[in-house]
Simulated scan of single mutants.
Amino acid sequence: MSPRPFHHGNLRAVLLDEAVGVLRESGVDGLSLRDLARRAGVSHGAPRSHFVDRQALLDALAEAGFERLTTAVRRALDSGGGRTERLHRVARAYVDFAVDDAALMELMFQVKATTTPESVHEAAATLFATLDGALGSTAPEAADDESRDHFKMLFAATMQGIAALVASGRIERPLGDRLVGTAMDTMLDSELGRRVVTVR
């Protein structure tokens, strides 16, 4: 494997890109700063100028993962159409990310409240704030914050469950796509969905 070229100052980005590739190939267990240095064509100690240890690398990957997923969700929302159509696109974007980067998704949701850097929690909060915005405004009497949070967590759990079935090979991707549509229709037509997503 030939080293990837990079300009001075963007080694951190190169290392993160390489780390995502390793995650896709061999999961979290395959990650090491020494191997990333070899892949990037730099000295063994160079990555430590950006990541003091392996955990710092994992935290940075989780943060970048939340940012990438937020970008995908925003792109789905910006494509036009009614709210139901946009929420369906958000769901597909969420599952696509979770299937294509299953190890990264698992890493992102393994964050610990007490030991994970604040920047990772902020990136996660931005994702869920974006999902909250996707639900649209609701009348004050229609839904409380707890109901909206319940819907968002149900959405994440359902989509990640479908993605896990696809990523593990238990079901084919086309069936996963159909399940995403069915799940969204079911959630939106539920009592909780009607209370939370009042603007279609």
Rank of each mutant, 00 (worst) to 15 (best):
R54M: 07
R200Q: 12
H44I: 03
G80H: 14
R74N: 07
R12Q: 14
T114F: 15
F128E: 02
R75E: 15
P174H: 12
L135M: 14
G193L: 00
E106W: 11
M187R: 08
F109D: 10
D35V: 06
F97A: 06
S32L: 02
D177P: 08
G161W: 08
V196I: 02
V42P: 09
L87Q: 07
M1H: 05
A157M: 10
T182I: 10
A157E: 12
V120G: 10
A46I: 03
L104W: 06
G136W: 14
A60I: 00
D144V: 05
H7W: 02
G136N: 08
G136L: 08
L127T: 08
L87A: 02
E106M: 06
R75D: 15
L58Y: 05
R194D: 01
D17S: 04
F128R: 11
T182Q: 11
G27W: 15
A167V: 00
T84E: 07
R194M: 04
D59K: 02
A143C: 15
R54P: 08
A157Y: 05
P3D: 15
T126A: 12
T130E: 08
R48G: 03
R200A: 13
A167Y: 01
R12M: 01
A139L: 11
A157I: 06
D35R: 15
V197S: 06
L58G: 01
S168C: 08
L61M: 07
L131M: 09
F6I: 00
V90C: 15
G21Q: 10
L107H: 09
L154F: 03
V196T: 02
D101M: 05
R89E: 12
M153P: 00
L58A: 01
Q55E: 10
G169D: 03
T115Q: 11
P47G: 12
V73L: 05
E67K: 07
E122A: 14
T186S: 14
D29Q: 10
A156I: 00
L87F: 08
T114R: 15
M153I: 09
A37C: 07
E146W: 12
R86H: 08
Q110R: 15
V199N: 11
L104V: 02
E191Y: 01
E25M: 09
R83E: 00
R89F: 13
L87T: 04
E172N: 03
R170V: 12
R194N: 00
A183K: 05
G27K: 10
R86D: 05
D145N: 01
R200D: 15
L107V: 10
L127V: 10
A125I: 06
R173G: 04
